[in-house]
């Protein structure tokens, strides 16, 4: 009985030892390994980089990653935590990875201690930890010197304006301008106002001021006013014609100025000859006497005023330069006119 008991005891002992041996072999076969790696060992202050924590494990067990909240160490801060990602599933094994976006605002060499997988280690009854790492944080800026006063740490970045940035808005802007102009013109048309833009209308040729003035003088001459004892009217019309001409030609607001003021304005204008100024002076002075002091000039004086007016305009007018086409047309017109006259004369004879 004792021998049977002994054998049973030994058999049990061997079986347990064998089972334990098998279990140990099975655990070793699981071969869980962990690692941690930084993108770079050197970074600028405030620069960001990834810390990759990887775990290679059999696919039949579930092991937890360590969790960090805000910091890895006192000087290394976490910016973003990425979810755990499965990188490969070959040979019945998983390669898992978790990335942490980290940064540091303290310059110097920072020691990152081994990252311990506590829960996984407990489950496997072994210590699972990565290697320690080091991170060099470099301060690229100059040391702040309080003696220098307040200066920018970094100069503003110069970003040149590129037309291409707003290119996409061009069609809308053009459409908006068309709409505004169109609406304004429509409102003006509706209210019966003149539309200032003559797109389809040919612009009327502007008659030069001297032509208007000379025509006016011809008209006054034809009315024979002073001959009919309307001397005041004669001088009023004569000075009005001259004032309008001066206003257009010299841009002097002569209609709202007195004779003295008009003459004073002319002191700054350089005439080709002084006679023009004297002629104007004679007309204005005589006209003032006639208009305001019942002066009755001699007929010669009246004629002289008209001649002086013609002279003043002709001496101070701006000659227009005619185009070749116009010159040619004028010559043809004159030739046709003289031919007509010759024909009429011949017929009369």
């Amino acid at each position: 009985m004792t021998q049977i008991h002994l054998r049973y005891h030994w058999a049990k002992k061997y079986l347990l030892s064998f089972g334990f041996l098998l279990l140990t072999l099975s655990m070793t076969a699981q071969n869980v390994s962990v690692s941690a790696k930084l993108d770079s060992t050197v970074t600028y202050i405030g620069g960001q980089m990834d810390l990759k924590i990887q775990m290679s494990q059999p696919n039949d067990i579930q092991l937890a990653f360590p969790t960090f909240k805000d910091t890895i160490t006192k000087s290394v801060e976490i910016v973003r935590v990425n979810p755990i990602d499965t990188l490969s599933t070959e040979n019945n094994r998983f390669l898992l990875e978790q990335r942490y976006r980290i940064t540091s605002f303290d310059s110097g060499l920072h020691y990152i201690p081994p990252i311990v997988f506590e829960e996984a280690g407990k489950l496997l009854d072994k210590t699972l930890q990565t290697d320690h790492m080091s991170l060099m944080v470099v301060n690229p800026f100059e040391e702040v010197d309080p003696q220098k006063g307040i200066t920018d740490i970094k100069q503003p970045i110069d970003t040149p304006f590129l037309l291409s940035e707003i290119q996409k808005y061009f069609p809308f802007v053009i459409l908006f301008i068309f709409l505004v102009v169109g609406t304004t013109l429509a409102i003006m048309k509706y209210r019966g106002r003149d539309i200032p833009v003559n797109i389809f209308k040919k612009e009327e040729p502007k008659i030069p001021p001297h032509v208007i003035a000379l025509n006016k003088l011809d008209e006054i001459k034809g009315e024979k006013l002073w001959q009919r004892s309307l001397t005041k009217q004669y001088y009023s019309k004569l000075t009005d014609a001259l004032r309008h001409y001066i206003e257009e030609r010299f841009e002097v607001s002569a209609m709202e100025q007195t004779s003295d003021e008009i003459l004073a304005s002319f002191k700054t204008i350089d005439f080709s000859d002084d006679k023009s100024f004297e002629n104007l002076k004679q007309i204005l002075r005589t006209a003032d006497l006639v208009k305001f002091a019942k002066h009755e000039p001699f007929p010669d004086e009246n004629d002289m005023s008209m001649i002086n007016a013609y002279f003043f305009i002709n001496q101070t007018k701006i000659e227009e330069i005619k185009s070749l086409e116009e010159e040619k047309q004028n010559m043809l017109d004159k030739e046709a006119e003289s031919a007509d006259n010759d024909l009429r004369n011949n017929n009369n004879e």
Partner: peptide, 10 residues
């Protein structure tokens, strides 16, 4: 002067 001209008014 025995008569008024616009200069006087102004």
């Amino acid at each position: 002067r025995g008569y008024v001209i616009p200069e006087d008014v102004r």
